[in-house]
Simulated assay, not measured.
Amino acid sequence: MSNEFDPITVPLIVPIEHGGNSYPELTFREAELGDLCAADAVSGEMQKTAAILAGMAGVPIQAIRKLKARDLAVITDKVGHLMGNEKKPTTGAT
């Protein structure tokens, strides 16, 4: 049985190449306090987001920084609730 906090795999529109590794998709687990603490070590909202996403996906922050903006948009839409953000309704209700 799956729940809304199970890891989510997001296929990338543009795969990331970093450190000899290719990432055609990233799997994100629910953020942990350590991920949020890692965000405190950097300045700037986008850097903080990158630090949290890197921890959630288990990849180096340098790899996350190579995401294309359109991939970032898809990722934040699909896994934002795993970062502690409120999940958006899918019914069209406001």
Rank of each mutant, 00 (worst) to 15 (best):
I64P: 03
G92S: 06
A93Q: 11
I52V: 15
I16C: 02
F5V: 14
K68I: 14
D40W: 01
K78N: 12
E30L: 08
P89A: 15
L26G: 05
L72A: 15
D40H: 05
I13D: 06
D77V: 09
K66T: 12
D71C: 07
P11V: 15
L53H: 02
H81G: 08
K48M: 10
L67D: 03
G80N: 09
P11Q: 12
G20V: 10
P60Q: 11
L36S: 00
T91V: 13
L36V: 12
M1E: 10
N21D: 13
V59F: 01
L12E: 01
E32I: 14
L26H: 05
E86W: 00
A73F: 05
A69W: 01
R70D: 15
N3H: 14
Q62L: 13
P7E: 11
L36H: 11
R65C: 07
A69D: 03
G84W: 11
A54Y: 02
G20W: 08
E32S: 02
D6G: 07
A39G: 13
L26I: 10
D6I: 07
L67C: 06
M1R: 14
V79K: 05
I52C: 00
S43A: 12
G19C: 09
A54C: 03
G55W: 06
K87Y: 00
I61L: 03
N21V: 14
L67S: 01
E32F: 05
A57S: 13
E45H: 03
A31R: 03
F5M: 12
N85W: 11
P15G: 10
C37R: 12
T91C: 00
E30N: 07
P60E: 11
V59N: 04
Y23R: 06
D6P: 01
N85K: 14
E30W: 00
A41K: 12
E45C: 02
I61Y: 02
T27F: 01
A51W: 02
I75G: 07
A38F: 01
P60S: 11
K78A: 15
A54D: 03
I13H: 03
T90M: 06
P7Y: 08
E17N: 14
E30I: 11
P24N: 07
D35F: 05
V42Q: 03
P60I: 13
F28M: 06
V42D: 05
G80W: 03
V74K: 04
D35S: 03
Y23C: 04
E45T: 15
S22L: 10
E86Q: 13
S2L: 10
L12K: 04
L53N: 04
G58N: 04
Q62W: 00
I52E: 01
P7T: 12
K88A: 15
A41I: 08
T90Q: 12
M1H: 13
I52N: 01
H18A: 10
K87D: 11
S2I: 12
H18D: 14
V14P: 00
G58R: 05
R65Y: 07
S2N: 11
A51R: 02
M1V: 15
P7V: 12
G80R: 09
G92H: 05
L12N: 03
E4L: 14
G20S: 09
A93V: 13
L72N: 05
I75A: 06
A93M: 04
G80P: 02
I75F: 02
R65Q: 14
